[in-house]
Every structure is written in C-alpha cells, then in structure tokens.
Amino acid sequence: MVGKITEMLEGFFATEAEFGDCFVVDVVQTNTRLEVYVDCDSGMTFGKCQRISRFLEAYLDEEQPLGDQYTLNVSSPGVDRPLKFFRQYVKNIGRTLEVTTHEGDQFKGQLKTVEEAFVVLETKVRRQEGKRKVTAVEDVEIAFAAIKKSVVKISF
C-alpha cells in the first residue's frame, strides 16, 4: 500500500502545476493509520497539505484499503525527521545539521555547500595548542555515501 500511495502522489504532483516541485519524503502505514510526509522545493503550505489530504481521502474512502475507519496525517517532514533526498539538503543550506556517518562519526555544523557527491559543514573543532585548548572553525566534507542520518538542528 505504501508503494501505491507514493505512486498516486507522484502522478498527482505531475499533473497539478501547483505541486510540480513537490515530492514524497516518506509514507508510514501502521494498521489503520497512514502518515504521509511531503516536501516542496518552494515550501509546503497548509493549503497544499489540505489538497493532498483530500486527494488521498477520496481514494481511501472509495477503495477502503485501511477499512472504513482510518486516520490520515499529511504534513511536511518537519525538523525532527532525517533528511533523505539531495533536494532537502539544498533547501537547508545555511542551517545547522547534525550528521552521523555509517562509521559512527558525528558532525554538527552549518551546511555550507551541497554537491552531487558530498556536503560541506562548517564545524567548530577544539584542539590542543601548547598548554591550552583552542576552538577553530573548519570545513568538513562528508560524502553522501557515508551519511547514515542527517537532522536539521534548530537554534533558539
């Protein structure tokens, strides 16, 4: 069913001009609950979520793949969900990311650059210089293939 919902939404986005830059980030189904996370390069709005929800409700009500009692939640992924796609990284240039690699290394810093094969974070590093510790700012290049998880961190 997750694949069917993704396929339907991709078709919907392709035919509706307002949704031309939208993409499915994730679809999660548990019993009679369906959570759909959608993002747009131009930004998600409440109105877009509402139209997507109504589109999906029409299918769910008619075909009833979840039965006649279900819960549907359509939203943007939010900052607590990991980044999954290249275009999400591009959208978040300038924001603080926390990146975990497959090797277990963790980096936290401002996303400076996004290229096809890697991202560059500006990080603060503490190092020993003589008898004292000094904080230095360094650019760290991380290959997309090495990234296990990236999460946007909000600063207050």
Rank of each mutant, 00 (worst) to 15 (best):
Y89E: 01
R126T: 12
F12W: 04
P65V: 06
F85S: 02
V99W: 00
N31I: 09
A117D: 15
V99N: 10
Y59P: 01
Q110Y: 04
L66V: 03
D61R: 07
E16D: 07
E16H: 13
A117H: 13
D80A: 06
L111W: 09
T45V: 01
T101C: 07
G47H: 13
I154E: 05
P82E: 01
H102T: 12
V137I: 13
G104K: 02
T15A: 09
I5V: 13
L56T: 03
Y89V: 02
F13L: 03
Y37D: 08
S155T: 12
E98C: 08
L9I: 01
T135Q: 09
K91Y: 07
G20E: 15
Y37M: 15
E129C: 03
E57A: 11
K124D: 08
G20T: 09
G3W: 04
T32H: 15
Y59I: 06
E141C: 06
D68M: 12
A143K: 14
N73C: 03
D61E: 14
I147E: 08
Q64E: 15
L72H: 10
A145H: 08
V74A: 05
I5M: 03
T135A: 04
K84Y: 03
L66E: 04
I52P: 05
R95M: 09
Q69P: 03
N73E: 15
V79D: 00
E35H: 13
F12H: 09
I147S: 12
A117C: 00
V114T: 12
M1R: 12
G3H: 07
M1S: 09
S76T: 09
L66C: 10
T6E: 14
G67L: 06
N92S: 09
A58V: 10
E7L: 04
P82H: 04
E7D: 11
E138Q: 06
E116N: 08
G47N: 14
K131Q: 14
K133I: 11
T32A: 15
K131G: 09
A143N: 12
Q106K: 15
M44Q: 04
